[in-house]
Structures are given as C-alpha cells and as structure tokens.
C-alpha cells in the first residue's frame, strides 16, 4: 500500500488530477455551476479539438521531437478541403470531407516527415519553417478568407448531437457533439498503437535512444516518417471538426494554439526530451488547460485573466517536473549520471 502511494506521488498524473479536482471544487463552490450536466458537456465539447491536437503532439514528443506546425497544417488542410467543396457546391455527407482532409493532412505531414526523418533536421526548426510555408500557401496561394457558408453535410455533422444536456436550474442546454466520438476513436487508436504495436513501442524506443533503436532493428526512418504523416492526419481531422462545429472556416483562428497544446501535454508528465509519458497524463494535462480556458469565468475571474493563469499553470507545472528531474539526478550522484549516457 505504501509502495503504491509512493509510486503515485511520483507521477505527474497524480498532481494534475489533484489540480483538476481542486479547480473543479473551487469553481463549484464559487458558482455552483461546475458539476452541472451542461457545463460538463460544454467542457467536453471544448476538449475535442485541443484533445486531438494533443494526441498528435504527444506522439511527436514521445518520439523525442516537437511539432509546432500542426495548427498551420490543420488550417491549410481544412481550408483547402472546405474551399474545394464549397466551390464545387458539394451537397453530400461528411465522409468525403473527412477523407479529403485526411489526405491533405497526410501529404502535409509527409513534408515534415521527409525533412525530419530523411534529412535529420531539428524538428522544432523544421516545423517552424513548414508552419510558415503552410500559412503562406493558405493565405498567399489560396488567398484564404473567411468562408461563412460551408457545405450542408459538414455543418450538419458539426451541429449533430449525441444527446442534449439540460441544466435543471437554469434551463440552459448544451449539445454533446457527435464529433466527440472522433476524439474517442482517435484516442483508442492511438492507445492501441502505442501500447500494443511494435510501431508504438518503437516510438518510445526512439525517444529513449535513437541509436539503440536503430541497432535493435527498428526502422527508424519509417517510424518517424509515418509518425509525422499520422500526426498530420490527426491534426487535419481536428481542423475539419472545428470548421464543422463552428459552421464556418476561419483561416487563422487556430494559429497560436500550438503553445497551449504542447503545454498541456508536458504538464501531463510527458518528458519534453522524449521517451516517457502516458496518454492519461496527456489527456489530463489538456483537460486542465481547457478548464482554465473555459471555466475561469465561472470562478468570477474576468476572461482576460485566462492568459495569465495559463502561463502560471504552465510554468508551475513544468517547474515542478524540472525540479523533480534535477533532484533525481542529484540523488543518484554525479558519477552515475555521467556513466549513464
């Protein structure tokens, strides 16, 4: 029992859970509105897009890289998809848009993949570069402007509800979007891939020690390439879902989300240096930040305090995990530290 406690105390997930619980209780006490069905549904629906992005960012970080291009990639791909469908006056269902955006995502992700896997360039700089290129293509070549009317298939998908939650006191209702299923499905797929396929273990292996992974027989190039393709697809899907849910395509309003998403992933205990981290932590970290973004208003905190709290959460969260790491190193002593490499 004691060991379990101790084990628990060392995990970021534990602290994040505490933070989430504390924050929700604080909001509940203050406003009485947190544990209402419609608020929970609102939160979950706000989680869909950041959650999908976080899954992609998580896999990249586990492999020892970092991707800051996903918002630009998602924007370009969702914009291209919507533009083409609007221009051809598409009247069909959601399937074609999804397939299209997955294809665009795969192609754009492959660009990242080639640059990072083949040319072995630093992922941060590469994705900064491709993010600039994607933005340039979207705004320059495609001359992106806001599309206010999207194909009916997309908007009906975006507004379709699994169920509708009603707040018994206020009578406010919130719809649980069908798109939430997308997050659940992708989460399950990512979980399966990471835990039950050699490919997924290969991602962890590369993040732990790339040279060893190569020597052990992992196809490092292929793993990395497919990773960025896959992340491109997930991000694209997130972009498309956002368009559907907002029933309009705004070319730039996803840009800048990368910071918050990465912060959430790292807050959940994923080592930025790669190789370790759990999906649970990743999702918990994201949930915490989504709560900060969406629920502070219930605490009576003006919305413009959001950014400040986001920053504080990020710094405190990372500070704690950084201090843990350096304390662990100190405890093991300088000698073992050196030998370890």
């Amino acid at each position: 029992m004691n060991r379990i406690m101790k084990n628990l105390m060392q995990r970021n997930e534990f602290y994040i859970s505490i933070a989430i619980v504390a924050l929700s209780i604080a909001i509940q006490l203050r406003s009485g509105q947190f544990f209402t069905s419609n608020n929970i549904v609102d939160l979950l629906s706000a989680l869909i897009v950041p959650g999908l992005f976080a899954l992609g960012a998580f896999m990249v970080i586990v492999s020892g890289g970092v991707d800051v291009s996903f918002p630009a990639l998602a924007s370009l791909s969702m914009y291209a998809t919507t533009r083409i469908l609007v221009d051809t006056n598409y009247q069909g269902g959601i399937l074609l848009p999804i397939v299209m955006s997955l294809c665009f995502g795969a192609i754009l992700g492959a660009v990242n993949g080639v640059l990072i896997a083949t040319f072995k360039l630093p992922p941060l700089i590469v994705t900064l570069g491709t993010s600039s290129v994607f933005k340039g293509i979207m705004q320059g070549v495609l001359n992106a402007v806001q599309i206010t009317v999207i194909p009916p298939g997309m908007s009906s998908f975006g507004t379709a509800a699994l169920f509708i939650a009603t707040n018994p006191q206020s009578g406010l209702t919130s719809r649980m979007p069908v798109a939430f299923l997308a997050l659940v499905i992708v989460l399950l797929i990512v979980y399966f891939v990471l835990q039950h396929t050699m490919y997924g273990r290969g991602l962890y292996a590369i993040g732990g020690n790339e040279v060893s992974a190569y020597r052990a027989g992992f196809n490092v190039w292929l793993i990395k390439f497919l990773l960025y393709v896959g992340v491109g697809m997930i991000s694209s899907l997130a972009g498309l879902i956002r368009v559907c849910m907002m029933t309009q395509a705004h070319p730039t309003n996803m840009l800048g989300m990368e910071m918050m998403v990465i912060a959430g992933v790292v807050l959940g205990g994923t080592a930025i240096t790669g190789g370790s981290g759990t999906l649970t932590g990743c999702m918990l970290g994201t949930i915490l930040l989504v709560m900060v973004e969406n629920s502070l208003i219930l605490l009576g905190v003006p919305t413009f305090w959001q950014g400040f709290f986001l920053g504080v959460f990020i710094i405190v969260g990372m500070g704690i995990s950084a201090l843990q790491v350096s304390r662990a190193i100190k405890a093991r002593g300088a000698l073992t530290r050196r030998v370890q490499q």
Binding site: R201, A205, N209, G217, G275
Partner: peptide
C-alpha cells in the same frame, strides 16, 4: 553505451530484438 532504452522496461529491452 550498451544500446539500451533507459525509458523502457527490462522485458522490452530484452525482447525487442527478437520480436523485430
């Protein structure tokens, strides 16, 4: 450097080569 994966379990370190 032993070519090991410090972040993974003993089991995985031992079994990867054969599985691959």
């Amino acid at each position: 450097d032993f070519s090991i994966f410090p972040n993974l379990s003993v089991m995985e370190n031992l079994a990867f080569n054969e599985e691959l």
